[in-house]
């Protein structure tokens, strides 16, 4: 149950942060430069993917440790 909860919470955290990152990218491309929509969306997608890859293995053990620590 704890394991499931940790997985759920971490998925929520890394997805949210990755989404925020790609939204920030979109915002930056809108505010700066003259990019077409393909570049903007493609770039946002790539940023999202890389952020997910970076955050999944870092957030998951962190959340598991925190949740485990609190209960234990």
């Amino acid at each position: 149950m704890d394991q499931q909860r940790a997985t759920y919470v971490s998925a929520l955290v890394y997805t949210a942060v990755s989404l925020l990152g790609s939204v920030a990218f979109l915002a930056a491309t809108t505010l700066r430069g003259d990019y077409n929509w393909v570049a903007r969306l493609g770039g946002a997608g790539w940023v999202f993917l890389l952020l997910m890859i970076i955050l999944m293995p870092t957030v998951t053990p962190w959340v598991k440790k925190r949740l485990g620590g609190r209960q234990g």
Partner: peptide, 21 residues
């Protein structure tokens, strides 16, 4: 591995926002 992905992200952002132009 994580470092490389971070670097890949940095490289992408650098060339996207500055280097290419």
């Amino acid at each position: 591995i994580l470092g490389v992905h971070m670097l890949a992200l940095g490289v992408f952002l650098f060339w996207f926002f500055g280097g290419f132009n």
